[in-house]
Structures are given as C-alpha cells and as structure tokens.
Amino acid sequence: MSDDNQPDARTDGGTGIVPPDDETPTWSERKSRRAGLPRLTYEYFERARREDQDLREQSTYVERDVLGFPTWPHELIRNLALTSFFVGMLLLLSATLPPHIGNPANPSSTPAIILPDWYLYWSFGLLKLGDLNPALSLLGEQKLMADRTYGVLANVVIVGAIAIVPFLNKGSARRPVEQPFWAAVGMGGVTFAFTMSMLSIQNIMPMNVSLLFDLTFLAPIVVGAITYAVLKTMREGYMYDLNRRYYRLRPPNRPWPTTTTVPTAARGATWRSRCGSTRRLPCSRR
C-alpha cells in the first residue's frame, strides 16, 4: 500500500510501449484478412483502433477502462447504418405495399368503431373496466360511481403507479438478472399495457370478450412470474459481480493482475478459483 502515498501517480508516460490487450488483433488475425471487402473493413477499423491506441498513449489523463470513443467512425458508422436501414425499409414498404388510403371521412355519419391512435389503446382500454366497478350492497346494489368515472380513476391509478416506480427503485441495475423482481415488474407492466390495448379493441378482436377480459389481468401475472423464475435461475450461475467490477474506475497506478487482463465472466472463473475466495478485490490488493 506504499504506492498510494506517492503524490502524483500516473499510469501514462513511461516507455510508450503498450502491451497488447484483448482488442489488439493477433498476427494470425491480421494475416487472415487479405482481400476484398473483409480487408477493406478490417483496414478501416484497424486504422480507427490504431488512432484510438495512439490517443491513449498520448493522453495525459489517468488511464481508465473506458476512455471514450471518437465520433468518427464509431458513432457515425452506427448511426448511418441504422438510418440506412430505416430509410431502406420505408422505401421498400412504400414501393411494394398496396396503397390503402380509403375514402375521406364522412362528417355526417358516425363510424361503427371509434378508436384512438394505437399508442393510446391502453388508456382507452382502462375506460372499459366497468365490469370491475363494484356494486355495494350497502347502497342497495348501487355502484358508488359511474362506470365512466371509474375508468378515469383507473387511468389515474395506473399513471400514478408508473410515476411511483422511480422512487421505489433507482434503476442501478445494468441488466435484468441483477434485479429479477423489478425486471418481472417491468415485463408484467409491458404485458399489461399490451393486453389492455387488446381489451380496448375488443370489438375487432377475434376472441370471446369475457375470456379476453380475464386474460388481460392474468397474462401479466403469468409473464411476470415466468420472468422472475427465469432470471432467478439465471442469476445462480451468473457472475455479474465480476463484470460490474470490471466497469468500475480502475484505481490509479494499480493495474489488473497480469494473468487476467479482462475479467469477463468466462475468465472470472479461473480468477476466482486462483484467489480461493469470492471476494470482489483482486488477489494483489489483499
């Protein structure tokens, strides 16, 4: 621990020789890409990797695990690929699908089926919960509130529940296996939004309405339970704590143990057994 007492601990500088990490291609990998598009692609990203490596070497910053990525080419190549995909999909569909713009709406006749836009189906479905509106025997089998008031209140309850979630869970999990319960809540909520949307278009759903009504509330519970069971099972053999350790800031002047440069889940197994313990700290720090 005497190294921590040095006033200016810096990892950059020195000889300038950077040992190869996992992203550095081996010589056989460099030789295997000789011609055509693989070579072009390889040279392109090899150049970017080289620039990144040079930047790291010239940097005066304390080296971290993730230094950041340049906008070109990393960000822009990805964005161009995504944009090309969606533009191509728009062109393909608009060129091949038959046009289906119907007759203009007739303002003097109400259509048989009135629906909001699809992204509001869940809210529209909540207005159709009249069957859940309890009739109180105290009031002589009369309902406490009208069905429409009940539907509006259901919207308030659902929106309020969604608004409360960030206060109950801060969302510090990187992936669902870390918090199976909240992942199950999320999957149940998504399913509930979907089934509620299906309930709202019950007029055109090819299904028995009462069955649809039951499924609307049962399916989210089933999906949530399955999600919880699957994630809880996955979590047993999942060494997410090692990956979480990897993404933390690397302490200055104290590189990783040289035997394991990157503690991925696969290598974590050997690392762990060598240390003989499941503590988070690497061997050299104990």
């Binding site: 569909l93 091949t96 699908l97 038959p98 289906h100 119907g102 055109i204 090819p206």
Partner: peptide, 15 residues
C-alpha cells in the same frame, strides 16, 4: 407480408 397484403387482404379495415 408484402405478398399477403396484395393477395390475402380484402380490406385494410378487415379483421
């Protein structure tokens, strides 16, 4: 989907 939209779709408002 493209083929079915031409040959298996009587109307886009049909179920």
């Amino acid at each position: 989907m493209i083929s079915a939209s031409w040959y298996r779709t009587p109307s886009f408002e049909s179920t």
